[in-house]
């Protein structure tokens, strides 16, 4: 009788809490700290190699490093946690309870999002030593949305492939493509490329089509913001808009797959 009066959000909150606690249990915090310290050392080393603009090089190196490190940490954490849950039959157990699959999915997403938020905050605190607070804030918001996209993409890929290697490869390919697609489009239309060659024209069309369905991650979390303080409100609007839309799209795709899944 008591269950009937539970808020529909209650299962989501509970699953999110359990997911976030998993981060603490699996020693994610020490790992993030070690990676962070390594980044600081790498940036200092890069700074000593430079003849001029040592501070700019340090900011660029640590910004790029933390971005890719954050993406890899969250991607592997999400995939590993979900694979373990599949293998331990934890997912079967949760879904045997009278809660909708969407609650499970959104609970998981919220839990992983809180971990992404924690990683972002930790990274931003260190970056304050390298760049202005406004630019670090913009960089941080952008990184958070980027990690959220990677988290949702990882969940979708794991629901689809059920295996870590295949899911990781798919996430990696989509992520990489999203980062380089704009450059590829620009190169594809350059004057050095032969015109009216079917293969090139076809590739240009494919890339233009992909640009419609992939997030423009090349405009996210730019180290340039940290180095030259070039981040603007327009960049903030873009990352928030693109982030919200793409996480929604990936969530819908993941839910579609999850609802069709036979356990």
């Amino acid at each position: 009788m008591k269950n009937r009066h539970l808020s529909p959000l209650q299962p989501i909150i509970t699953i999110a809490q359990i997911t976030a606690q998993e981060g603490i249990k699996t020693k994610l915090i020490p790992l993030v700290v070690v990676i962070l310290l390594f980044g600081v050392m790498l940036a200092s080393f890069a700074g000593t190699l430079s003849v001029v603009e040592a501070d700019a090089i340090k900011s660029a190196v640590i910004g790029s490093y933390l971005r890719i490190a954050g993406v890899l940490i969250i991607c592997l954490f999400v995939l590993n946690a979900q694979v373990r849950e599949l293998n331990d039959k934890g997912l079967d157990l949760v879904l045997a309870l009278p809660i909708p699959r969407s609650s499970y999915f959104f609970g998981k997403l919220a839990g992983f999002a809180s971990i992404a938020f924690f990683i972002t905050v930790l990274f931003c605190l260190v970056l304050l030593f390298y760049a202005s607070p406004q630019q670090v804030a913009l960089w941080g918001i952008s990184l958070f949305f980027e990690l959220l996209i990677v988290t949702t993409l990882s969940l979708l890929c794991l629901f689809t492939f059920n295996q870590l290697p295949a899911a990781f490869t798919a996430v990696f390919v989509v992520y990489l493509l999203s980062r380089v697609l704009t450059s590829l489009i620009l190169v594809g239309h350059g004057p050095i490329m032969p015109k009216y060659v079917i293969v090139n024209e076809l590739m240009n069309m494919v890339m233009a089509g992909l640009a419609f369905v992939l997030p423009a991650l090349d405009r996210f979390t730019n180290s340039e913001w940290l180095v030259y303080s070039t981040g603007t409100t327009a960049d903030l609007n873009f990352v928030v808009g693109q982030g919200v839309i793409y996480v929604t799209l990936l969530s819908a795709a993941a839910l579609l797959d999850f609802y069709r899944k036979n356990l």
């Binding site: 839309i245 969530s251 819908a252 839910l255 069709r260």
Partner: peptide, 18 residues
């Protein structure tokens, strides 16, 4: 077996993305 709202969610999100 997929609830209708998931499809609606998907179509809206895809349209917004494009």
């Amino acid at each position: 077996d997929v609830p209708l709202w998931v499809y609606v969610f998907m179509v809206i999100a895809l349209s917004c993305q494009m």
